[in-house]
Design a binder for these strands. Structure first.
Lengths: 192, 192
DNA sequence: GATTTATGACTGACCAGTCAGTTCAAACAA
DNA sequence: TTGTTTGAACTGACTGGTCAGTCATAAATC
C-alpha cells in the first residue's frame, strides 16, 4: 500500500481548514503552507495566487455540496425521508467543512465574474433539484398541490441553515449530532 | 434653519456605505473619510481604530433592526399582518443598509468578545419577541397549538433572509418593491 | 547529471495609525 | 467695531509593520 501524496489536494485541504478558521484576509499563505507541511513557494507551483487558491477551494466545496443535494432530492424516497437526508447531509457537510458557510465570499474582489456566475448557476441547479423534489412530492400526493415551489425551496434552504447554526451555537454539539426532526416536522407542515 | 453637522453620524453613515460595498478589509479608512467629506485623521478623533468604527457602525445597525422587529412582533395585530410588516420592515432595512447583512462579521478578529456576546443577546431578544408573537397567535387561535416555537422562529428568520436575497438577485428590483406575499403565505401554512 | 520540484530569504506594495502643523470660530481686549 | 488670542477640530504626509508573490539555490527524482 503506497501512499501517493497529492500535493494539490493537501494544499486544498489545508486552505479549507485555514480559510475557514481565519477568514480570507487573516489567513496567511504561510499558515496554509505550514498546515500542508510544505514551504510557501510550493503553493505557487499549484496555484497562481492566493485568490486562485481560494476560488479553487471554494469551487471544490460547492461542487460536493451540490452533488449530494442533487442525489438526495432526486432519489425515489418519500418527501419526509428526503428532508431528513438533506438535513443530515447538511450536518455532515458542516462537520467536514466547518466554517465553509462562514466564508461565503461576499467581497467582490475575491471572486472573478466567471466564478460568481458559476456559483449562481450551481445554486440554480440546486434549486431546480429541490423544486423537482417538491413536484415529485405533489405527484405522490405528499405535498399540497398549490404549493409555491420557488418560495418553498427558499424557505427550506434558508431555514435549514438558520436551524443548524442556532442549534450548534446553543448546544455544545457536533453538527452531525443535531437532531433534524424538529426542522423536518416544521417544513412538512408547510408542505402538507 | 441651521444645519448642524454631526461628524460622528456622518462617519458612521459613510462607514456603513463603504464597508457594505467593499467589505471590511478592502475598505480603506481614507475611502470612508472621503465619503464623509473629511480627512483621514479626523476619523481618529471619533473612533479609536478601524475595528472600533466597524463595531460601532454594526451595533448601530443591529439596534435599529432589533427595535423595529420588536415593535412589530409585540403589537396588537393579527399574525398575518405581523408577518407582512416584518417582511416590509426587512425590505426597508435592506434598502437603507444595503449590504449590511453581507458583512455580518464572522471573523473573530473583527469582534471583541463583549461585542460578540452583545450580538448574541440581541439575537436572543429578537427571537423572544418572535416567540411571543407565535404565542399570541396561538392565544388568538390563529396558530396551531402544537407549533414548535423555537423552530418556527428560526424558519421565519432564515427563510425571510433567503427570500429577499433571491428575489432581489433575480428581479432587478428595489428591496422595498419586492412583494412579501408569497413568503407570508408559505409561512402561514406552516403555522396554521 | 539533467530535469523536475521544493525552499525560504527577500522585495515592494499597501495601509492603519500618528502627529506636527493649519484653520477658524468664538472669547476677549482695545 | 476692529484687532488679537486661544484651543479644539481638522489635515495629510509620513512611518512601521505586514504579507503576497518572486527567484536564486537546494533537494529530490529519474
Amino acid at each position: 500500500m503506497t501512499v501517493i501524496k497529492d500535493r494539490r489536494m493537501d494544499i486544498l485541504q489545508a486552505a479549507l481548514h485555514i480559510f475557514s478558521k481565519k477568514g480570507y484576509h487573516n489567513a496567511k499563505i504561510e499558515d496554509i503552507a505550514m498546515e500542508a507541511g510544505i514551504a510557501k513557494g510550493t503553493i505557487y507551483q499549484y496555484f497562481s495566487s492566493k485568490q486562485d487558491l481560494f476560488q479553487q477551494m471554494f469551487r471544490h466545496g460547492v461542487e460536493r455540496y451540490g452533488q449530494s443535494l442533487q442525489e438526495i432530492a432526486t432519489n425515489e424516497s418519500h418527501i419526509r425521508d428526503k428532508l431528513l437526508a438533506l438535513a443530515q447531509s447538511h450536518g455532515k457537510f458542516l462537520e467536514e467543512h466547518i466554517g465553509m458557510s462562514e466564508i461565503m465570499p461576499k467581497e467582490s474582489k475575491l471572486m472573478s465574474k466567471e466564478m460568481r456566475c458559476w456559483v449562481l448557476e450551481q445554486r440554480d441547479h440546486a434549486f431546480s433539484s429541490l423544486e423537482e423534489m417538491i413536484e415529485q412530492g405533489i405527484a405522490l400526493g405528499e405535498v399540497r398541490e398549490d404549493t409555491d415551489k420557488g418560495v418553498a425551496v427558499l424557505a427550506i434552504i434558508g431555514s435549514l441553515f438558520a436551524y443548524y447554526e442556532k442549534e450548534s451555537r446553543n448546544k455544545e454539539m457536533k453538527f452531525e449530532e443535531i437532531s433534524p426532526m424538529p426542522w423536518v416536522d416544521f417544513i412538512l407542515r408547510a408542505l402538507q
